[in-house]
Design a protein around this nucleic acid. Sequence first.
DNA 1: GTACGAACTTAAGTCAACTTGAGGTCAAGC
DNA 2: GCTTGACCTCAAGTTGACTTAAGTTCGTAC
Lengths: 140, 140
Amino acid sequence: MKTLDIGTVSKMTGIAPSTLRYYDDEGLIESVGRHGLRRQFEANVVLQLTLINMGKTAGFSLSQIKKMFNVDGKPEIDREEILAKVEDLGKQIKQLTALRDSLKHVANCPAPSHLECESFQRMVKVAHKQMVSRQSRQKQ
Amino acid sequence: MKTLDIGTVSKMTGIAPSTLRYYDDEGLIESVGRHGLRRQFEANVVLQLTLINMGKTAGFSLSQIKKMFNVDGKPEIDREEILAKVEDLGKQIKQLTALRDSLKHVANCPAPSHLECESFQRMVKVAHKQMVSRQSRQKQ
DNA sequence: GTACGAACTTAAGTCAACTTGAGGTCAAGC
DNA sequence: GCTTGACCTCAAGTTGACTTAAGTTCGTAC
């Protein structure tokens, strides 16, 4: 099976080689050996990196991501914990939707100050509730 | 009008006083004066902090957030830029949804390795496309 | 067989976003 | 008038996620 140089992976994913080395050191991805002193990666590392980037987008730390999808695709953590994250993500999606709507509002509403605009306040208050309920169950 | 001590704001929002002081120094929020040497805040600071937290959830930096919603609720940046962010957020929401579905899958699929599971791969590939298209228009 | 380029290692540096620590101030209650 | 507790300032420290720099090692092409 054909393996990939770090530069190739970098070009395929847009992630800097230094970052890939860093991820390798941290155990987020795995090289399958060396060609001389060059790390060789399998093609599925691209998939893994996609997952890593999705996790980052979601605001997870690298160590959390590592636990969620470890190298061979088997998660270290249990169903319960993952489902909790799933639920959390649902809330986050709602929040982002609220933010998007708020921004859309800001771009269009002619009110002089949005903090005084009623419909804006309503939106934000809804978001606030969600936020507080999310914050209350934050973990490392 | 009644104003709030930093400790009160902290309790209302769950944000540490040191962070509130930091935000104040950075100009993300504004205190309306002092009582002795204590900062006094108006009630609407809670709304502002909600917006700040929403922005953080969305992965914006504090300086970006500051530009989006500055102290009086009037954004410094123009419609165009905000609408670009709105669009970006839409993509991010899609990505998060993909991540959520992937995680849901991981929790339920009995396959030994998810990286080999077809339906998982399909999901992630879709996410990959979105990711790349988002990455290509990143700015400070 | 030599030159080149792409990758390597290790340590140090950077940046954002906070937090901590030391020492100081003030208002309210007793 | 004294104590107490909540706040203050300012500088330095911390953490996570990388990046940069300096010097080194290979494989491939010529």
